[in-house]
Amino acid sequence: MQKLHDALERVGKVVLGKDEQIRLAVACMLARGHLLIEDLPGMGKTTLAHALSRIFSLDYQRVQFTSDMLPADILGVSVFDPDSRRFELRKGPVFTQLLLADEINRATPKTQSALLEAMEERQVTQDGESRPLPQPFFVVATQNPLDQGGTFPLPESQLDRFLMRISLGYPAPEAEMSLLRAGDLRERALDMSPALTVAELMALMAEVEQVHASEDLLDYLQRLLEHSRGCGWFTAGLSPRAGLGVLRAARAWALLDKRKYVIPEDIQAVLKPVCEHRLQSASGGTAGGAASRLLEAVPVVR
């Protein structure tokens, strides 16, 4: 546990002034979820992903998505080996523990869906043969919200595969000052030494599932979901899958707070990153501020 907090602190030294987002990203990992970072280039997305992989001693692969990329570029290719006279799978970059899928919205829908399927099923099926992905397996995908030309925005059904969507945003003034003083922190991220072993990380992930969620808490969550469906602000309310996602993320958040049970604060902390990318405002456009509206409208205790 203490090691986990050391880890958070050390990542904070590389991604400056973004403690909240780091915490969310780690919670997302502990909850076995994939993370979507939506931000402009140069905000430290890559640095964050890199730092996370180093600190948890995970294998790391980075794929820059482009429009001419094919599913095989991610998943791998079957090649004919003349020596053995058999097809062999040349594993693609997806066979790693932490995959940074940069600018995922640049790839064609077909390539996107190949990746997302692998994310969901945690295995790759090719030529009728399934190969499991390594354990643990995280995808950190980034996309540029302003970049519209020649992109294929992820459809709603695909966005659902990401447990959280966060954005880093510009650093605060003090953080930016330190950033300027320190120079490029990406180098430093590469040099970071691991704080937890993979086994320790897996143990923590198992621990997340043991975090208690009481009836009163589930009731609160249920009313939140129900309100999202009944209030009419959104074209469709939150799905049951979204509800499970909130609960998992809240459990991880509680564990990060060294608690063995979930409290409403945990739900409130993770609601925005878990839910907002799954909601579409009924009046058209994205549902900005949806989470805070929901939180205001639904009483914490009946």
């Binding site: 009163d216 409290i263 409403p264 604060e265 409130q268 939180l295 205001e296 409208a297 639904v298 009483p299 914490v300 205790v301 009946r302």
Partner: peptide
């Protein structure tokens, strides 16, 4: 839950407005 309601009522009597969406802490 009734106990929680009672607390809220008490706070209201003391003119402390607390939104329903606020978590306990």
């Amino acid at each position: 839950q009734r106990e929680y309601r009672a607390l809220r009522k008490q706070l209201l009597r003391s003119n402390i407005a607390v939104s329903e969406g606020l978590p306990p802490r």
